[in-house]
Amino acid sequence: MGGQTGSGPLRVAVIIGSTRQGRAGEAIAGWFVEHARRRQDIDLDVLDLLDYAFPDRFPDRATPQMRRFSGAVERAEAYVVVTPEYNRSFPASLKQAIDYAYDEWRAKPVGFVSYGSHSLGIHAVEALRCVFTELHTVTVRDGVALDLLDEGGLGTEPQQRAATAMLDELAWWGLALREARARRPYIA
């Protein structure tokens, strides 16, 4: 459990949580990944839920796509979830994917890049914090919250600062928890 430990850059999975046609998540994740790749302390893997053919219903046995996703979650040491807000919560596609892994999430940090109209995706993040707490993760305090109605576009200075602050926290927690998992197996 907890993935491989070691040294080197922190392995961060960026999860694009929306699968809607015409979604903004792909462009937002692209901007975020470009910003994050400037850092030397993290190594990014993008997990776009559109790239997975998940079953309509939770099967008795994991499908190859479910195993591929949970394997990527296992290998990662930290996560950034890119999520829209739909009806004051996050998309069903994201909840479905989160539920395909369980122990793989434990004792790792999660950061959020959220977006929406007016609310900036804050309600989706608050709902996700409850889910990830149940999975024994550590959610970082600071995040990136984007207003889709903002005419400033992506990559404004405040957005860049928010992304850097969130990544700083994620890296600190990720490295601290990497060291903790190496010294002592997680108990839950």
Rank of each mutant, 00 (worst) to 15 (best):
F112S: 09
V110H: 04
F112V: 13
I28C: 05
E74S: 01
E126K: 07
F90D: 02
Y86G: 02
E77M: 02
Y79A: 13
A62I: 00
R37K: 15
D43I: 03
V46W: 11
R37Y: 01
H118E: 13
S114Y: 05
V82W: 00
V33F: 01
M66K: 01
Y100W: 11
D48E: 12
R68M: 02
R75S: 09
R57T: 08
L50V: 00
F32G: 09
E126M: 13
R61C: 00
G121Q: 09
L128S: 11
L120G: 02
H35A: 14
C130I: 15
E85W: 04
S93P: 03
R67G: 06
Y86S: 05
R38M: 08
W105E: 14
R129M: 02
F69C: 06
R61F: 00
G30A: 06
R67H: 05
P64K: 06
A101N: 01
T137R: 11
A62V: 02
L135I: 03
H118K: 08
R88G: 00
H118Q: 11
R68W: 00
L47H: 06
C130S: 12
Y79W: 08
S114E: 10
E34S: 15
R39L: 06
A101K: 10
H118A: 13
L135Y: 14
V110M: 03
M66A: 07
V73G: 03
Y79P: 08
R141D: 01
S93A: 15
P59W: 08
F54K: 02
W105V: 15
A92R: 04
G111V: 14
D51W: 03
Y100P: 02
L128K: 10
V131H: 01
V73W: 05
F32I: 10
V46L: 08
V82D: 11
A124C: 02
A53K: 11
W105P: 11
A62T: 01
A76H: 01
R37D: 12
D142G: 01
F58N: 09
